[in-house]
Amino acid sequence: MSDLEGFTAMMERYEPAVISTILNDYLDGMIKIAFEHDGTLDRIVGDAVAVIFSAPVVQADHAQRAYDCALAMDRFAEAYAEQQRAAGVALGSTRIGVHTGRVLIGNFGGNEMLDYRALGDPINTASRLETVNSQLGTRICVSGETIEQCSSVSVRPVGDLVLKGKQEAIAAYEPLAASRVGDLDAYLNSYQQMCERSEEARTAFSRLAESAPDDRLVQFHNNRLMGESRGVGL
C-alpha cells in the first residue's frame, strides 16, 4: 500500500491541469514498477496505489517481490519528488506499507460491475503500516511476516507496533535503503538496550539523536524515551 504525502493539500494550490499531469506521471511510474515485479494492481484511490502478489498466479517468492517492489517504488517516488521540487512544485514523500498474509481474492461488486481485488485483515494491516510511517518518520514500514519470508533483505527494526484497530503488536522493520541511518551498529545496540528496558537506552538514543539529526526514526525513539523519563504517556 502506498500513499503520496500532502497531495490533497496540493490540489488547492495548483491548477487542475498541473495536478493532472503530476499525478498521472507519478501513477504511471508506480504502476510500471509494480508490473516489472509481476505484481497485480489491486486498485488506485486518488494518489494511493495498492498492489498484491501471488494472485492470480501463485508466486513462491511473493514476499521478496513485494519487498523489492516497495524499494523500487521508493526510489522512483523520491527521484520524482525531487524533480518536481526543483521545478517549484512542493511534492511530498511517498509512504509505503508492506505486509504478508492470507486474503480473499476474487471478483467483487455486484451484478452491474465486478472488480478483481483482495479483501481481508492483511490488507488493513498493510494500510496501517503505510499510515504509521508519518509518526515514525520512515517512508517504508515492512511487517515481520514479510521479512520472515524474504531471502534477501537489509533492514533495521522499528519496533513492535500496536496498529490502529489492532489488539496485538506486530513487528515492523525499515529497509536500510530507504532510511537516513548513520551508524547502524550504534542504532542496533541502542535498540537492544531499549528492548531490555535498560536505563542506558535513553543516553544511547540521546547521543544518536545528536550525531544523526536527519535520522527521523532515531529522533522518534529519542523523543519517546525522553517522554517516558518525564512521565509522559504514549
Results as ranks from 00 to 15, higher is better:
Met1Ala: 14
Thr8Lys: 01
Thr8Glu: 02
Thr8Ala: 04
Ala9Arg: 14
Met11Leu: 12
Glu12Trp: 06
Glu12Thr: 14
Glu15Pro: 00
Ala17Ile: 10
Val18Pro: 01
Ser20Asp: 07
Thr21Arg: 12
Asp25Tyr: 04
Tyr26Ile: 04
Gly29Thr: 04
Met30Ser: 12
Lys32Ile: 09
Ile33Arg: 09
Ala34Gln: 11
Phe35Ser: 09
Glu36Gln: 15
Glu36Cys: 14
Asp38Lys: 15
Gly39Lys: 11
Thr40Lys: 05
Thr40Pro: 00
Thr40Phe: 13
Thr40Tyr: 10
Ile44Glu: 06
Ile44Ala: 01
Ile44Met: 03
Val49Glu: 10
Val49Asp: 09
Ala50Ser: 13
Ile52Tyr: 12
Phe53Lys: 05
Ser54Thr: 04
Arg65Gln: 14
Ala66Leu: 09
Tyr67Gly: 11
Tyr67Leu: 05
Asp68Arg: 05
Cys69Lys: 03
Met73Arg: 01
Met73Leu: 08
Asp74Gly: 02
Asp74Asn: 12
Glu78Lys: 00
Ala79Trp: 04
Ala79Asp: 14
Tyr80Asn: 07
Gln84Tyr: 03
Gln84His: 12
Arg85Met: 05
Arg85Tyr: 09
Ala86Arg: 15
Val89Asn: 11
Ala90Ser: 09
Leu91Tyr: 09
Ser93Asp: 13
Ser93Gly: 08
Arg95Gly: 13
Val98Thr: 01
Val98Ala: 00
Thr100Arg: 05
Leu104His: 04
Ile105Cys: 09
Ile105Tyr: 12
Asn107Trp: 12
Gly109Gln: 08
Gly110Pro: 03
Gly110Cys: 06
Leu114His: 03
Asp115Ala: 07
Asp115Met: 04
Ala118Cys: 15
Ala126His: 11
Ser127Gly: 13
Arg128Gly: 10
Leu129Cys: 08
Val132Asp: 05
Val132Ala: 12
Asn133Phe: 00
Leu136Phe: 07
Leu136Trp: 01
Leu136Met: 11
Gly137Phe: 00
Thr138Gln: 01
Ile140Gln: 06
Val142Cys: 03
Ser143Pro: 09
Ser143Gln: 08
Gly144Asn: 04
Glu148Leu: 06
Gln149Ser: 07
Cys150Phe: 08
Val153Gln: 12
Val153Arg: 14
Ser154Gln: 13
Val155Asp: 11
Val155Thr: 14
Pro157Arg: 11
Val158Met: 02
Val158Ser: 00
Leu163Met: 11
Gly165Met: 14
Gly165Ser: 15
Gln167Phe: 05
Glu168His: 12
Ala169His: 09
Ile170His: 06
Ala171Trp: 02
Ala171Ile: 07
Tyr173Val: 05
Tyr173Leu: 05
Ala178Val: 02
Ala178Glu: 04
Ser179Gln: 10
Arg180Asp: 10
Val181Met: 15
Asp183Trp: 06
Asp183Gln: 07
Tyr187Gly: 08
Leu188Val: 08
Leu188Thr: 09
Leu188Asn: 13
Asn189Gln: 14
Asn189Ile: 08
Tyr191Asn: 06
Gln192Glu: 08
Gln193Phe: 03
Met194Trp: 11
Cys195Phe: 03
Ser198Asp: 15
Ser198Cys: 02
Glu199Met: 11
Arg202Pro: 02
Ser206Lys: 12
Ser206Asn: 15
Ala209His: 01
Glu210Trp: 12
Ser211Arg: 15
Ser211Tyr: 06
Pro213Tyr: 00
Arg216Lys: 15
Leu217Glu: 01
Gln219Ser: 02
Phe220Pro: 13
Leu225Asp: 00
Met226Thr: 08
Gly227His: 02
Glu228Met: 10
Arg230His: 15
Gly231Arg: 02
Gly233Glu: 08
Leu234Phe: 13
Leu234His: 05
Leu234Gln: 14
